[in-house]
Design a protein around this nucleic acid. Structure first.
Lengths: 226, 226
DNA sequence: CGCTTGCAAGAGCAGTGCTCTCGTTGTGAC
DNA sequence: GTCACAACGAGAGCACTGCTCTTGCAAGCG
């Protein structure tokens, strides 16, 4: 709280302020948010923003990390409020979908096509896996509690394809569970993205909950979560 | 071939040439292809391009329609080369994935997040459904041949959510089949996009075929295609 | 008090989509 | 064959973008 910290505190506030406005612009204009426009909104010169973010990509990275954490946190919260694995599973999926419907452009930022010139730095890897870890954890939990019928091991011998992901993100899980977790996660992303990006008709309506739940139940069934 | 047709013919050739170069730029630069850069490549003024495409969005639309048709055609070809429904199913899925791996930016254009200011015109709806129709057709075929065990009807009463899609794209199919077709289609999109957009690790490798096939087999199983 | 360092502002560069205005040239009607 | 007209290419120009560089100011520390 000394005067020495004032600069740092103001800087942190300013950084947060920029992100806030940028997020607002993201919500309206999409992923091609303009650094200059953000600066205009903040009544500051565009060059001043570069004191806080070295480039537009760095600002995007900050937003991406926040988005991953937001959706991850949201899913974790939802899952925590249920007891049975299947309920936790469905709660997490619905939380992800609800968050996506509330923040479509942020969803597009993290799970849509990568922005053209942008290369995700390492910092985004960890928060990006929160939802996956949650699903995997739920499934692993159900396994340990004996709620899942014994599955036959993987056929086709592609287990080694999953090794890199398995050993970094989902250790201590049998290959079959890793495969099912990843498949379910992709299913979740696919369902949400399809609904959000208007793959078929652009009638994105929140009351299509039923179909979404049908899909996520299917994914759970596929993973052995009855 | 009369002289009267010269203008029209040159125009058609020019249009195709622009699309060709644009597609090349798309492959390298991604969705933010520059109309001016395309014009430069063609050694023409940027304003001249506007004689052929009223806007950058219109050029994108043309590329999108082509992409839909390409991937659709590819899937149809692959499916036609197999006999049993499950083989046709898998062949179609692999064809879609292979095309996507070959043309990642085109895939992003049609199945990724929508480009910011862009609103898809009606022209894109029809070609967009080719893959979906193919999957649905394969499934319907299997049904008619009695290869699919009788499924219980949908529970949860969300069949009406699917009505708009069902009646415009998949008529004459029971709601259950419509739901399964759509779910499988989303699963396909999700699997390909996840792999392509590097959701987890950016190790997009063609030899992850095994895991992809595992997912698509699961989708088929879910849809009753043993 | 003076010095350093963090910060904001402005000008400027190269690039973008798009519009407008010019000449030019192919085309169909007469 | 002539002539008006439409299509076309080129260039200038506008408003915008990301980003850099320089300049000036003021807060913090010795």
């Amino acid at each position: 709280m000394s005067a020495a910290n004032l600069r740092a505190r103001v800087r942190a506030e300013m950084t947060e302020e920029i992100k806030k406005v940028a997020r607002r612009h993201l919500a309206t204009d999409g992923a091609d948010l303009s650094l200059r426009a953000v600066a205009r909104d903040l009544k500051m010169a565009s060059s001043a923003v570069y004191r806080y973010f070295a480039s537009r990509d760095e600002l995007l990275t900050a937003l991406i990390i926040d988005a991953y954490n937001e959706v991850g946190h949201s899913a974790e919260q939802a899952a925590a409020s249920a007891a049975a694995p299947i309920d936790r599973w469905l709660a997490a999926c619905h939380a992800v979908r609800d968050w996506a419907l509330d923040n479509p452009h942020q969803w597009a930022l993290i799970y849509g096509s990568p922005v053209p010139g942008y290369q995700a730095p390492k910092d985004t890897v960890m928060p990006a896996t929160r939802v996956l870890l949650l699903l995997g954890g739920t499934l692993a939990d159900a396994y340990q509690k004996g709620l899942v019928p014994r599955r036959e091991p993987l056929t086709g011998g592609f287990a080694d394809e999953l090794v890199p992901v398995a050993e970094t993100f989902l250790p201590d899980l049998p290959p079959r569970v890793v495969a099912d977790t990843m498949a379910a996660f992709f299913q979740l992303c696919g369902a949400v993205s399809a609904e959000l990006f208007g793959q078929l008709n652009n009638t994105v309506e929140r009351d299509r909950r039923g179909f979404f739940e049908y899909q996520m139940r299917s994914a759970a069934t596929l993973a052995g979560l009855a």
